[in-house]
Nucleic acid binder design. Sequence first.
DNA 1: AAGTGGTCTAGACCACCGT
DNA 2: CGGTGGTCTAGACCACTTT
Lengths: 240, 240
Amino acid sequence: MPALYREIADDIAARILDGELAAGSALPSENRLAGAYGVARGTIRRALSILRDRGELTARQGASWMVTGARRAQDVQQLRSFAQWARSRGMVPGGHVVAVTTAPASVTERRRLRLDGGDVLRVVRVRTLDGRRVMLERTTYATWIAPAILTLSPDEPSVVQLLFERFGVATARAENIVDAVAATSDDARHLGVRRSSPLLRLRRESYDASGRPIEYGEDRYVPGTVAFQVHSTRGPGAPS
Amino acid sequence: MPALYREIADDIAARILDGELAAGSALPSENRLAGAYGVARGTIRRALSILRDRGELTARQGASWMVTGARRAQDVQQLRSFAQWARSRGMVPGGHVVAVTTAPASVTERRRLRLDGGDVLRVVRVRTLDGRRVMLERTTYATWIAPAILTLSPDEPSVVQLLFERFGVATARAENIVDAVAATSDDARHLGVRRSSPLLRLRRESYDASGRPIEYGEDRYVPGTVAFQVHSTRGPGAPS
DNA sequence: AAGTGGTCTAGACCACCGT
DNA sequence: CGGTGGTCTAGACCACTTT
């Protein structure tokens, strides 16, 4: 059962999408919304703050909440898997595994995955969107999760989702560092681009709810196919 | 006067930095903190949620808040200006203007800056960090802000800050789209890199509190000098 | 079972925006 | 000025983790 404030946020988001709440228009006051939804004002504020963090609404003290009408795009902050994100944009995610290796954890891997030893699982995948190759993914999975990964179909499009559904392993937090690199000949071959052409690199580390590292790796994106959007706000502050 | 929850968040952040609250350790319970700071539990939760959004803390229902000990890095979500960000990392921001043009707004500029006409100001700047060229910035300023920009010293390192201090114009919201491009010969000359080498491109649009576009443009970063960090959480939700 | 964070309420006061 | 959002309080109940 989702929380009340989530349901309300979803409802308001739907009303924006429907056009009932037009871009640039003002929302009813928080008190009116509270009355209309039959909840306390705090719950409304919490719902609105979610939409503000997504860039769909803005607030100014003294004035009403406004609908921004920002173009929706990919949002790194949303922490969705490649497959989930693709589907939400109406595209078909696909891909295939290029290489799978089981090997003793290197020093670096032990440090980054906080392992004492054991084998890690290294996987290289090509990711496609509507059949087009858009990304090359290199991932190292921690020892404790590796067996679970191996039970999955090699070309499974949504590893993250299945990890949660079958094993209850959910990514709670992730750190992503973005920069640009030139395609190596390896990258170029797998992605079908020219060697040394620019790629967007996203280095990731993900953690479960208890803070234990799940995996780390990097994704190399072909520019023009996928763009990352980051939304930033300098609001009066964190939501209420 | 900053809000209470901000002061508390700053205080806890300082205690983390001091090492009083070590990475991986648990915080006192919210009720204890509320007692210690002499505020209501809600105020404590709000302060903690700020630190969670910055990736410094994590929360799990039923367990205590934990200090993550994440490496501090650049964070696109923070919405700081280049100069402010550089200074916060202990580096000296600098730069020089390559070109300044005043011209009637093109169709694209009128649309993106929501102008009816008039002249816009186009500025190209090279940004440096400790004397090294790291970024090429191309910006188009809206008609209404252009005169203010022109009063600033051409090589002013912190345009954003001065705009606020002298004219009260603050960026409230920004949309950033990140991808990778190959350096044009122009880029290469200004940044001192080889032509067609990979650059990280950040396209920006910024808005003031009332939602009016201030400027838009793009920054091209030399990889390896600056990296963007994006922190993402799948928490029980937006802060309280 | 006890303690923790997650959600929600009802009310209060303030700072700011609009008319 | 009235209405708006921003902050803060005090209490309640629930879901979850820990011991």
